[in-house]
Structure formats: structure tokens, C-alpha cells
């Protein structure tokens, strides 16, 4: 049986000239990629005042609503703030480009297209650039392994595995009978690809950009969205929705000062 007789001998030169170089190259490329990404990152863009104001306008009503069922603010003040906010949302005072033109009402404005907004475009380009840095070296390394080490068996795992792991560990070697414990060169590449994150974290710190397996999962567009949160949002629509919330919160409103004298008196046992 194959388990009693060792069926395969590996040349130690394979270890020295294939296994170690692949591992080393992958580690070094990861480190290099980390520094390239750091170099490529553009500093966060400064936003003009109007844009900051637009982004933060929603927070105002959220703060007001957060305490509305037991509000610290007396009724007249609450109502004036609430009405002021809902009027401003209705009129679009907080919009970056000023209130919408009176002529264009009726027809809802199209949501801003991220392709036409240069600021959003920049964010997307940054995401694409990072993505390119992630992808290109991986493709090169894979091509290199496929070209020179096609069909190489690199190591034997020291533990037995079931047949299910065959496609994972012996990619590039089409033999039905070989023991699953033998690992092919292409599979070794994939094992490194997904497994080196821990080493990078040790070498480069927690939030390094060397790990490529995570970048594979994110699309360039998702990266652009994360880089500039809320950029392509239609604030006008959000404001209109917030107006409804405000009206709702106004219905729930009660002042913390209502009946506070009874509470204080009853705490001292003097309730009438």
C-alpha cells in the first residue's frame, strides 16, 4: 500500500530553489505593496464649508429627536427649533448648492451621478489605483509560478487529509491517485496568498495594506464609496425624509420639566 511505502522522493533542490523562493517573493511583494499603497494614497480632500454644512445638517435634527420623548428643552424652545429645522429642510437651505430653483419643482431632480462629480471621481480613481497595485503583482507571480514551476510538487504535509482537499492542495497536477498530502506549487501559492496576513500584521502593524486576499473581496467601486462616505447621496431626498421624522418626534415630545415639582416633592415625601 502507498501508506507503508514512500512513493515519492523530493529533490532537496526543489525546497531550496522553488519552495523558499515562492514564499519569500510573496512576502516581499506584500511588503512592497504596502509601501506603494502608502505612497499612492492622496491626503483627504478638504471640503468647502457648504459641503460640510450639508453633511452635518441631518445631525441637528437627529440630536433634537434623540431626546424628544423626554426632552430637556421647554416646549416653546423645542417647537421653535423643530419648526425652524423642518422649514429649512423643506426649503433646502442646507443644500450645498443652495435651495433648488423654483422653476424646476415638480420634476424631481435626478440623483447626482458619481461619474459627473469630480470629487467622487477622484475618490473612485484612488480606489482603482489601490486595486491595480493589489492585482498586478498577484497576476505576475501567478504567471511566474505557472510558467516555471508548472506541475511541481513542493512539500508533503505531515498529517493525512481526506480526498476533499485534493482540488485545494494539488491544483495544476491532474493525477487521481496521488496522496492528498502532497502540495503542488500553484496550491502553495494560494495557501500563501490567503495565509500570510498574520505575518504581515506582525511585520507592518495592524492596518497594513499588504494583504491581498481582503482586497480581492472588495470591488473598486466599494472602495470608492468607503473612501468618501455619503458623497453620492441625494441630500435633498434625505432632508425631506428627515422632515417626516421631525414631525413624528414632535408628536412624541414631552418636557422633562412637566411635573418635576411633584417628583421632587414626592422624593422628600411631601407629595400633596
Amino acid at each position: 500500500m502507498s501508506s507503508s511505502a514512500v512513493s515519492l522522493y523530493l529533490d532537496p533542490q526543489i525546497r531550496d530553489w522553488v519552495l523558499f523562493p515562492i514564499t519569500l517573493v510573496m512576502i516581499l511583494v506584500g511588503v512592497l505593496r504596502h509601501y506603494v499603497v502608502v505612497l499612492l494614497q492622496s491626503p483627504p480632500k478638504k471640503q468647502p464649508r457648504a459641503a460640510v454644512r450639508e453633511q452635518r445638517a441631518l445631525v441637528r435634527s437627529q440630536i433634537l429627536r434623540a431626546t424628544s420623548s423626554n426632552s430637556p428643552v421647554p416646549p416653546s424652545f423645542y417647537l421653535s427649533i423643530s419648526h425652524h429645522l423642518s422649514d429649512a429642510y423643506e426649503a433646502g437651505t442646507y443644500l450645498k448648492d443652495g435651495p433648488p430653483k423654483p422653476g424646476s419643482d415638480g420634476a424631481p431632480a435626478a440623483p447626482p451621478n458619481p461619474m459627473t462629480d469630480p470629487a467622487a471621481m477622484d475618490g473612485m480613481m484612488a480606489g482603482m489605483k489601490t486595486q491595480m497595485v493589489m492585482m498586478v503583482p498577484q497576476m505576475v507571480i501567478m504567471g511566474w509560478i505557472n510558467f516555471f514551476f508548472q506541475g511541481f510538487v513542493l512539500i508533503k504535509l505531515p498529517f493525512p487529509l481526506t480526498l476533499g482537499f485534493k482540488s485545494m492542495l494539488q491544483r495544476g497536477i491532474e493525477t487521481p491517485d496521488m496522496d492528498v498530502r502532497w502540495v503542488s506549487s500553484l496550491s502553495w501559492y494560494f495557501l500563501n496568498f490567503f495565509g500570510l496576513n498574520g505575518l504581515y500584521r506582525l511585520l507592518l502593524g495592524g492596518d497594513n495594506s499588504a494583504d491581498s486576499s481582503q482586497a480581492m473581496m472588495a470591488s473598486p467601486f466599494a472602495a470608492a464609496g468607503a473612501a468618501q462616505p455619503g458623497q453620492p447621496q441625494d441630500f435633498n431626498k434625505l432632508f425631506k425624509a428627515e422632515k417626516e421624522h421631525l414631525a413624528f418626534a414632535e408628536g412624541l415630545y414631552s418636557w422633562v420639566g412637566d411635573g418635576v415639582e411633584d417628583r421632587v416633592l414626592s422624593r422628600y415625601g411631601e407629595a400633596p
Binding site: P74, V256, R267, E270
Partner: peptide, 17 residues
């Protein structure tokens, strides 16, 4: 009312008369 609110806030931990 507001003075009482302050009192109410500061003496939350007093439970019995």
C-alpha cells in the same frame, strides 16, 4: 421649573424620603 430639573438630576440617587 429648570431649577427643579437640576435638583431632580442631581439627587437621582436618593430613593426613600
Amino acid at each position: 421649573k429648570m431649577f427643579l430639573v437640576v435638583v431632580d438630576m442631581c439627587e437621582q440617587d436618593l430613593s426613600t424620603p
